[in-house]
Amino acid sequence: MKLFSNTIQSIEKAITFSTAKQKVTSNNIANLDTPNYKAQEVRFNQALGNEMQKLQALKTNNQHINFGSSSSNYRIMSRNSTRYQQNGNNVDIDQEMTDLAKNQIQYNALIDRLSSKFNSLKTVIKGGN
């Protein structure tokens, strides 16, 4: 029996993705002046995750990990095709700051939604009081 709906699990995955984006963007900003540093980005692997869910593997033991389940649906990739500075660094500070602001807004919205879900559960548990 599931205690929580899939919504909470989906929000949790989105928060994990947003956290990874925050770390990668912060790392890019921290390495703004590092020679030959290549900016990184987080790519969401939604299509891959959906296809993996369709695959079925034979489990011979209950302790085996489910084949279709993946702990992360994103990849961290380096951007090697661009060059912005003379030292080989390709961090665009304006783009990174924009990404940081957008990610912060998304993260806050996800946290608000998760908080709302838990407040609804708390209301149900208390009996509406």
Results as ranks from 00 to 15, higher is better:
R83W: 00
S115I: 05
I111M: 15
N50M: 10
N108E: 12
E96G: 11
A101E: 12
I11K: 08
R75M: 13
S26A: 14
A57D: 05
S70F: 13
Q95H: 03
I76A: 03
V91F: 04
Q95W: 00
I29R: 13
Y84C: 03
A39D: 07
K21A: 03
Q53P: 01
Y74H: 02
L48T: 02
S69D: 12
S116V: 00
T19Y: 07
A109H: 11
G128P: 08
N45C: 01
P35Y: 14
E51C: 09
S26P: 01
V24K: 02
G127Q: 09
A47W: 00
N73D: 05
A109K: 08
I125L: 06
D99F: 07
G128L: 05
I15R: 04
N108W: 01
D92A: 06
Q104C: 00
N89P: 02
N90V: 10
N73M: 06
F44N: 13
L32K: 04
Q63K: 06
S72P: 00
V24E: 04
L121R: 04
Q40V: 05
G128F: 10
T16D: 15
N80Q: 12
Q85L: 11
V24G: 03
N6Q: 14
K38L: 10
N62F: 01
S72D: 03
H64F: 06
S5E: 04
T34I: 13
Q9M: 08
K13N: 03
R113N: 07
N62M: 00
K23L: 14
V42D: 04
L110M: 14
Y107K: 01
L48W: 01
S10K: 06
T25D: 00
S71I: 01
R79M: 14
G68K: 05
S70L: 13
K117L: 03
D33W: 09
I93S: 05
R113V: 03
R75A: 11
L48G: 04
T98I: 15
F17E: 10
A47N: 07
N66M: 00
E96S: 14
T34W: 13
N87V: 08
E41M: 15
I93T: 06
V42E: 02
K2N: 02
Q56K: 05
I65Q: 08
Q9T: 12
Q46G: 04
Y84S: 08
T7Q: 12
S5I: 03
A20P: 03
D94S: 12
T123L: 12
V124L: 13
A30F: 06
E96V: 14
D33C: 04
Q85Y: 15
A57G: 07
T16G: 15
L32W: 03
N28F: 10
Q53W: 00
A39G: 10
Q40A: 13
N36L: 12
Q46D: 10
I105H: 05
R43W: 01
D94R: 12
K126Y: 13
K13S: 11
D33I: 10
D94K: 10
S78F: 09
